Simulated scan of single mutants.
Amino acid sequence: MTTTVWLTIGATLLCGVLAVLGVHAWSTGRARHEALIERLDRTGPAEAPGGRRRRFRGVDRRLRRTRLGRWITLRLAVTGLDLTPGEFFVGTAAATGGLWILAHVLFAPFFGPIAGLLAVWGAFGFLDWQRNKRIEKFINQLPELSRILANATQAGLALRTALSMAAEELDAPAGEELARVSDQLAVGHSVETALGELAERLPSRELVVLVTTLVLSNRAGGTVVGSLRNLTETLEERKETRREVRTQLSQVNLTAYAVPAMGLAALLLLDRVLPGAIDRMTDSFLGQAAVVVALVLYGLGVFVIRRLSKIDV
């Protein structure tokens, strides 16, 4: 045989050996990963830090391995809720089933799937509401945070030390978020990266201004006392303005949800006055189409009212 044939055979054998070694290394690593997860599940804390016992641990363990579970985990991480993905998933499923049955009994079988979809939408809407609520609380703490950073910087402390001190003195959510920033700085992350991730988790104009001020001052190496003092006063004024705007728009926001509630009450009243009216209405295609159109119009009305009453300060 020629030299080319021997080289071809040798290269083929080498590739085969490397492929076998690669598959063996991949399977071994995967087995170790699975064993580590199982060991953590068995030896991990059965109770939450606040003392609450975790439930549905098996569901939570399986759910975290899926794309849906990872997405729910990310949504829960920015809300500050003491819930696991498994608990949220089981709670949402139970609420969906309960509302489905309730709508089936009170109204008609046609309303069961609609109530189930509304339950799922309401569960994730609740997460968005908690996230916005957490952002609002954090914004209200920004003047105090800016004041602490200004005092610490004026005393000669480094920005990393000032952030750690603020994390210890402030309550949640600012204390928790700054503690996460301090942990990232402790393991080698830059100030710009850690504060940038904070701004992504809790997006707001006020926080972006504060982060930009801190990053630029840290990059340029100048003093930030004067900038933080001025920023503290500005944040206090914006805080009061936001509070006044929210008070003025509270009646409008209440109207946005009161109108659909009145429509639902009218539907229940109609079924009580004329028993079986909803069943007869949803038996035909035209009745079902009318119900769907009415629900879409109610939803569109809520959306339009919310958009018109949304004022960015």
Rank of each mutant, 00 (worst) to 15 (best):
W6Y: 14
V59N: 06
A158Q: 15
G69A: 00
G299H: 13
R238P: 07
L13E: 07
R55V: 07
R243T: 12
R32M: 09
V245L: 01
E168P: 07
F110W: 12
L270G: 13
N132T: 11
I114A: 13
P49K: 08
S217C: 15
S250G: 03
S250N: 08
A256L: 10
H33L: 13
A35L: 12
A150P: 09
G221V: 08
Q288H: 02
F110S: 03
F138R: 11
I311Q: 02
P49E: 07
G188P: 13
A115E: 04
R280Y: 04
F110M: 04
E206P: 14
R306G: 12
T255V: 11
L159N: 07
A256I: 03
R52L: 09
V120Y: 03
L235P: 00
R75L: 03
G116N: 05
V90G: 00
L18C: 15
E236I: 00
Q288N: 10
L106D: 03
A167H: 06
W100G: 08
S146N: 01
V191Q: 09
G299K: 10
F124W: 03
H24G: 09
R30V: 01
I311T: 05
L270P: 14
L18G: 08
E233D: 05
F285G: 12
G276C: 09
R30Q: 07
R32C: 12
E169V: 10
A261C: 07
L286F: 15
V215H: 09
R62L: 10
H24R: 14
T12Q: 12
T28W: 15
